[in-house]
Design a protein around this nucleic acid. Structure first.
Lengths: 102, 102
DNA sequence: ACTGTATATCGAGATATCTCGATTTATGGA
DNA sequence: TCCATAAATCGAGATATCTCGATATACAGT
């Protein structure tokens, strides 16, 4: 749990927005045939919604993954990203521990 | 409550450290004669502890004030800063509202 | 093996943040 | 009024972040 990097990862409105979107799979288009039972969302769907370049979104997802806010799973040519609720909560716990009194 | 700016303000280890220090007045030297009953800590004390330049710390305190994490009170030539617990908690509430599921 | 699609990585220009020293402003005391 | 001290503001160089297009890699189907 690297607070420094975690805060940095959240210090960007699009990355925060992506984390919000990932709360609910239905924020994205339906899964392609064969992907129905896979958790997570592929990069292309996220990119389409965020309207930033593919490389930017891939980079963003890498950052979010690095600090543990999301996990990725590769299936064929697709990488599926989903939130890691436990780590997100751990971040809040650490943050509050540092910043809230006492 | 501007989340964007608030996160930005926290995206710096020294500023977070200052907020931690301000939890407890005893992290700083004793108040000067005449200041004993004033809440908060003057910029010079914070600067001394943070070991950064006067202008940097003044700037930092300005940022923290702008997002409401601290309030300032002027007494003579001194500006005393102290935490605004209510706003800090409001920040966490907003943050959790945006980032925690559901 | 070849082609096409999805993602990751690289390199770079534009923009923002960090931090400083110098200067300015505000205040208090002699 | 003049000087000293505390804090705020200004201007700038160094460093980091943002975001892109181009390229590389991984995989699937023909």
């Amino acid at each position: 749990m690297d607070l420094e990097q975690s805060i940095s990862a959240l210090n960007n409105p699009v990355r925060r927005q992506i984390l919000e979107w990932l709360k609910d799979r239905s924020n994205f288009p339906p899964a392609l045939p064969g992907h129905e039972d896979l958790e997570g969302v592929c990069v292309a769907y996220i990119q389409e919604k965020a309207k930033l370049s593919q490389s930017t979104i891939s980079n963003y997802m890498g950052l979010l993954k690095q600090v543990g806010f999301v996990v990725s799973e590769r299936h064929g040519q697709w990488t599926f990203y989903r939130r890691d609720e436990e780590n997100i909560q751990a971040f809040f716990a650490a943050m509050q521990d540092e910043l809230l009194k006492p």
